[in-house]
Structures are given as structure tokens and as C-alpha cells.
Write a protein that binds this DNA or RNA. Structure first.
Lengths: 231, 231
DNA sequence: CGTGCTACCTACCGGTCGGTAGGTCGGGGT
DNA sequence: ACCCCGACCTACCGACCGGTAGGTAGCACG
């Protein structure tokens, strides 16, 4: 039975440390979490923890890289081959919102919150991985606009509007709120990329994406308690 | 000359402390900033600083309340009387974006970043002040949808989409980037609240806000360097 | 002149921070 | 039997943390 019997393999143990540390840092913040606490949560002493990592900053860097891996696996890789740019953006928004709302991978939340904690090369490296996502979105917005599928918009503004809507969710979403994460995803997708209903309104045939008029008065009620939190 | 000669009046001094502390906390984060550093930046000793404030957490609370005052003065109060809900949202988005991009009032950035740092009553108090803004936005979205000025959208999703676009800006905006803050504000307003061009497309006369079709292919180029930063 | 008050100061508190030196201990290789 | 190595441990480092006790200099008021 060679190397079978669930001996928490080297890399396995390291990943477990990253996940435990990520849970704590996500709750208390990077500066607000001590190595003592992280070690205890890993059922180790501090010196034992330092056997696996180099220092606190490198631990954060490893967590963020792990988070970017998870993001690329669960979002980017699943949508990057969608041919239609608007469908690509729709699917991407959906996956990204659900990545933030579902609790798996606190690492992603840390990437979002601790955007200015790392410095120097580590900071530059993570920023570069983020930038690839921005480029991907800008490219999609650019294509969609060029094909007349959305209103003409600066791709950068489109990309960062998309990101703001999607990523800000981590600041206010509560799983037991009035809206489920599915409803939020559907609602935001529908708000930014409304379905095409009418064909061309004037003489142009190929250009068809216009936001359709609402059925007169339809909004639910007034604001009311949202079940969510603060901005 | 009674009480004239620029003796930095009690409240004046306190405000100066809040602003200095806010600058530091905005740069280094709340947990990452020591009272020693804040005191030094105020050209005082730590004990001298503690003559003016009660403790570190109360200092953060005071900064956030000051930030909310500034926000209400510079954004809310200037737009809340605009009758048309869409114009109200447009103006509000503009003012809010510029509040974030212009460097004045680091206090506002602290409110955005340290959204989970306070606890207990202080946290509840600030959250309540934030909630009033969410309610204001939800009300505006609700009215706009009811009047058929925008696509029907859940007011909560509208409000938090608005907030995400606007507030996420603090994470990536650089004053020397390709886009100026004015361009970002204009672009985002135009993206979420496009101008009305065509009248009713079908039989309904009052319902007119449909997103207008782009002039065929018009998008600038591909993505290119955005001049900004990470998501 | 004395009193009271604000606005600070020096000096210090116990505790915790990130990090390390050096030892122990069990299992695999030979 | 021996050794070695990785995976931990105890014990400790100097620096710094948030916060305070107690003193004092300057000014206003009587």
C-alpha cells in the first residue's frame, strides 16, 4: 500500500495551515491577528508554525496566491472560453459573486480586503495577477461594445464598475439576509447586462441590444428593511 | 478684541487631531497604526494625546462620525432635494465618486475600509448612519423604477450596485492614472443611468427610458494599459 | 498672592508582538 | 545498531503595544 494511508502529505499540511490562517486573518484582519493565535489554531506552538513558514508577510503572500489560484480555477477558467462577450461577462459576474458569498476560500476575501497590506515585490506580484483579470474584463467590454451588444463605454470604466458591484458584496452580504446570493447574482447580471428583447428600433438591423422598457409601474414597494447591512 | 486672536480653539484642536490620526490610519490601517505614531504626528507625547481622547477605539469612532458628517454635508445634503429620482441618483453618484477620489477627508476612506473594525454599540451606531444612506438610495431606485425611468430592479440590488461601483473606487483610483475622476464619474453615471433619447418605443407614452443603441461599432480600441491599478 | 484648571510632560505598567536559538523525539534508510 | 532529518517543542529575545499615575508650567480669575 505504498504511500496511501492518509498521512497528511507535506503539501496537504501546508495547505491546511494556509486555510486556518486565512480563516483567522479574514475574521480579525492581518495586523489584528497574531502569529500566536494562528499557531494555536493550527494546534502548534509559534515556533512549530515557523518551521513551515518564513515570516508573517510571506504567509500573507502565500494565502493571497492561493486565493488567486482558487479564483482562476472557479471563475476565470470556467468562463474564458465563452465566445459571446456579453454571455462571458454574465457568467463571469455570476461565478464571481457566488465565489464571494459562499464562504469557501476566505483567501479571496483577504485579497479583497488587504489590498494595500503587502509591499514591494510581493505586492507587485499579486497586483499583476489581479491586473490580468482587469485586462480580461476590459477585453470583454471592448468586444461587446464593438459588436454593439452594450452601450459604448470605456472598457476600464466598464471593468471597474463590474468589479465594484461584484466585489463590494463582501462588505455587506449576510447569508441570512432577505436576498439570497443567487438573487443578488441574477439581479446584478440583469441590471448591467439586460437581456435583448426588442430588435432594432430604428433602421439598423444588426444592432439590437437596447434596454427594454419596464411594464409601466412594477417596482415592488418602497425600500423597506433590506435584511442586509451597511454600504 | 475678546476671543479673536487665532488661539486654536478647543474644538479646532480636537478636529486637527482627528484629521491627523485619520491620515495615518488611512495609510497604515487601524491596527497597523500605534498611538505613539499618532501622538508624534500631532507633535505630542502619547500621554498628551490621551488627554484629548479616551482610548484608541473611541478615536476611531470619532473619526468615522466625523467622516459621516463630511459625507452628509458634501453629498447627501446637496442632492436630497432633487425632485427627479434619476437626476438625484446621477448627482449623488457624481458627488460621491468625487468625495472618494479627491484626497480631502481620509475619514471617509477609513469608514469604507474599516467596515468591521468597530464592535458593539459604536459599530451599531455607525452602521445605522450608513443604513440611512442605503435607505435613501433604495427609495430613489424604487421611485425611478415605479415611474418607469429605469428598468425594474430590486431597490436593494440597485442601491448596492450603485454603492459598489462608487465606493470600490477607493481601492484602485490613482490621481495620475489615464482617467481623471471627472471622467470616471461621467462614465459611471452614463453607464448606470443613460440619458433618455428615444421616446416610447411601443404604445406607452410616459414610459420612455430605454437604453439607446450604440452607433454601430464605436468602441475605442482594445483594453490597453488602464493607467489604474488592481481590482 | 493663591487657587483652580487646561494642557501637556516624564516615567512607567503588564502584556504581547514577531521571531529565534537550541533541544527533543520518532521513524526511515542503511 | 547507527545516524539523520523533519517536525515539532521550551524558553527566551528586544521592541513595542495601549494605557496610566502623577507631576508641572502657564494662564485666568478672585
Amino acid at each position: 500500500m505504498t504511500t496511501s494511508g492518509r498521512k497528511p502529505d507535506e503539501g496537504e499540511r501546508y495547505k491546511a495551515i494556509l486555510e486556518t490562517a486565512a480563516r483567522l486573518i479574514c475574521e480579525r484582519g492581518y495586523e489584528g491577528t497574531s502569529m500566536q493565535e494562528i499557531a494555536a489554531a493550527c494546534r502548534m506552538t509559534k515556533a512549530g508554525l515557523y518551521h513551515h513558514i518564513q515570516n508573517k508577510e510571506q504567509l500573507l503572500f502565500a494565502i493571497m496566491n492561493y486565493g488567486m489560484d482558487l479564483f482562476e480555477e472557479q471563475v476565470l477558467s470556467r468562463v474564458q472560453d465563452i465566445a459571446d462577450p456579453v454571455d462571458r461577462l454574465r457568467a463571469c459576474m455570476r461565478h464571481n459573486i457566488l465565489l464571494v458569498t459562499r464562504g469557501w476560500s476566505k483567501e479571496v476575501i483577504i485579497i479583497l480586503h488587504e489590498h494595500a497590506t503587502l509591499t514591494g515585490e510581493a505586492r507587485a506580484f499579486i497586483d499583476n495577477r489581479k491586473k490580468r483579470y482587469v485586462d480580461f474584463l476590459e477585453e470583454a467590454f471592448s468586444q461587446a461594445a464593438q459588436q454593439g451588444r452594450i452601450r459604448p463605454v470605456d472598457p476600464t470604466i466598464g471593468a471597474f464598475s463590474f468589479l465594484g458591484m461584484v466585489l463590494w458584496v463582501y462588505k455587506w452580504f449576510k447569508p441570512d439576509g432577505r436576498l439570497t446570493d443567487e438573487q443578488i447574482a441574477d439581479g446584478m447580471v440583469d441590471l448591467l447586462f439586460p437581456p435583448i428583447v426588442a430588435a432594432a428600433v430604428d433602421g439598423q438591423p444588426g444592432v439590437s441590444s437596447l434596454r427594454v422598457v419596464p411594464r409601466a409601474a412594477s417596482g415592488s414597494g418602497t425600500s423597506s428593511g433590506s435584511g442586509t447591512e451597511e454600504p
